[in-house]
Amino acid sequence: MEPAQHPARIRMTPAARRVLDAAERLFYTRGIHAVGVDLIAAEAGVTKKTLYDRFGSKERIVVEYLAGRDERWRLLLGDHLDAVAGQEPAARILAVFDASRAWAAEYGARGCSMINAHAEIEDPAHPAYAVITAQKAWMLELFTTLARETGSSDPGRLGQTLMLLHEGALVAHGLGVLPEPFVRAREEARRLLAGG
């Protein structure tokens, strides 16, 4: 898997790491707009001056939060794809759904951080907007590439359909409206790939 293409990352001193860890926990559980720098600094055990010295702005903390989650997701997904290397192309597609289920169990009780952030950040000028949209564009390209490997006559359409199944499972998981949405989406993807 290629590395994530994000803006230049901030060098993580111990204080910066504490800020980012606190921000990630707070942003994910409470929402980005609901969390201010005072709370982040207090939770991290640093002064606001230290927070601003390391990050410069709350917006930059949001960028680091989302870019860090995206990088960890890509690593976990890469491990899942590597585990089925050499198998039939359909197995690689299904591995994406398996990776999402594993990610959600460990890091995603409240759904997809990118989808959640996009609900709060609609302005394309916000520095985190590019991280959000790039992550989803990357996922669509991944599904399209994997669809092409199956020999599909229309890999673009198949990639889009797989993306819709995947994103629907992410949203359903975050909302808690369906039991085992990743298992269900994986089964629908398997049927689609089998032509049934």
Rank of each mutant, 00 (worst) to 15 (best):
I121A: 05
I10A: 03
A67C: 05
H118T: 06
L66R: 00
W103V: 02
D53N: 11
I32K: 03
L193N: 03
L142N: 12
E64T: 02
L193K: 08
D98G: 14
H126N: 04
A23V: 08
F55I: 02
K49D: 10
K48Q: 11
A169V: 01
L39T: 13
R92K: 13
T50R: 10
I115L: 15
H126L: 04
V171Y: 09
T13D: 01
A22P: 08
A194V: 04
A99Y: 15
W73R: 13
A105H: 11
E188T: 11
A105E: 15
E188D: 10
M1P: 08
T150D: 01
W138R: 14
L158H: 10
E149H: 13
L158T: 08
D98A: 11
V84E: 01
I121K: 06
D79Q: 11
S113G: 03
S152G: 10
Q87P: 00
S100V: 01
E64D: 02
H173Q: 14
V37G: 08
Q87W: 07
I121Q: 06
A119Q: 13
A16C: 10
L39N: 02
R18S: 09
A41P: 07
D21R: 15
Q5T: 13
R148M: 10
Q87Y: 09
D70C: 04
A67F: 06
R190M: 09
L51V: 04
A41N: 05
I115Q: 11
M163P: 00
V35C: 06
R11L: 06
E106C: 05
A169S: 11
F97D: 12
V19A: 06
R110A: 11
E106D: 13
R11Y: 04
H6K: 12
H118M: 07
Y129T: 04
R60Y: 02
D154C: 05
L77M: 04
D70W: 07
G45Y: 09
E141H: 15
L51G: 02
L158C: 11
P3N: 06
K49W: 01
G78W: 04
K58Y: 00
T150R: 02
T150E: 02
V171D: 06
H118K: 12
E2R: 04
G168S: 09
A147R: 09
A172H: 09
L193A: 05
R184N: 14
R184W: 15
M1L: 12
C112H: 13
E149N: 12
T133Y: 05
L94M: 02
L175F: 07
Y129H: 14
N116V: 10
R60L: 01
S153N: 10
H118E: 05
H118W: 07
R101W: 03
D82W: 02
V37F: 05
A34P: 00
A41M: 01
T144L: 09
R157N: 12
E122Y: 08
S152H: 14
R74H: 07
D98Y: 14
A8I: 03
D98H: 15
S113A: 08
R74G: 00
Y28N: 08
D123L: 03
R186Q: 14
L51D: 03
D21Q: 15
R9C: 03
C112Q: 07
N116I: 11
E106N: 10
L192H: 13
P181H: 00
R9F: 00
T161P: 00
G195V: 12
W138H: 15
I10R: 14
E2G: 01
K136R: 12
L178S: 14
D154N: 14
T150I: 03
W103D: 13
M1T: 13
A67G: 06
H166A: 07
L39D: 12
P155G: 05
I10F: 01
